[in-house]
């Protein structure tokens, strides 16, 4: 059996190599938008967030934003590099934002419970600020940390394959 002609052989597409610098700019813009909304709408923006938390919609909204941004960033990197997305990265991007945002939500419930348990002045305003801080930290973590994990896994695999070869 003869080898396939070079012109007919399909070129091997490399997999997406995630660099944190590619993700950092988008997360920075997300952060700046949050900051600007806080500066220019210091009352109404936090009120919207607290109302969504009270009605139970905040975690869903955070998940939608984090998952959408993660998918957008990953496919954008794949498109720019003309590289093939991997199942490992897809699994990380599908599960890690849910774990991170869910974890932040548990921490928030715990912080709110502690605020109410300790006899502090002005508890409602304090809870509002706690919700605001957790929303921001949860959003940034939900977008950034999955890419950090993918990056570390890719480096680990590259090191392993280099050692084996």
């Amino acid at each position: 059996m003869s080898a396939p002609a070079p012109a007919l052989a399909k070129p091997e597409r490399r997999t997406v190599a995630v660099r944190l610098a590619d993700v950092a700019v988008t997360v920075a813009y997300l952060s700046l938008v949050f900051g600007l909304l806080l500066v220019f709408f210091p009352v109404s923006f936090p009120r919207i967030i607290v109302h969504s938390w009270q009605s139970g919609n905040l975690i869903v909204a955070m998940l939608v934003i984090a998952l959408t941004l993660d998918a957008y960033l990953y496919f954008r990197i794949a498109y720019l590099l003309s590289a093939r997305p991997t199942a490992l990265a897809a699994a990380c991007l599908g599960s890690l934002p849910i774990i991170v945002v869910g974890g932040c939500s548990i921490l928030l419930q715990s912080a709110v419970a502690q605020t109410l348990a300790v006899d502090l002045p002005n508890p409602q305003a304090r809870i509002g600020e706690e919700v605001l801080a957790h929303t921001y930290l949860g959003l940034v973590s939900g977008v950034f940390l999955p890419f950090l994990v993918i990056r570390l896994l890719q480096q680990f695999r590259a090191t392993n394959s280099a050692r084996q070869s």
């Binding site: 590619d22 952060s31 806080l38």
Partner: peptide
Amino acid sequence: RNLAFLVFSVVVVVEIL
């Protein structure tokens, strides 16, 4: 530059909070 930009934007928001 990109990661420093991320750091600056995050610390600004944390300081506002």
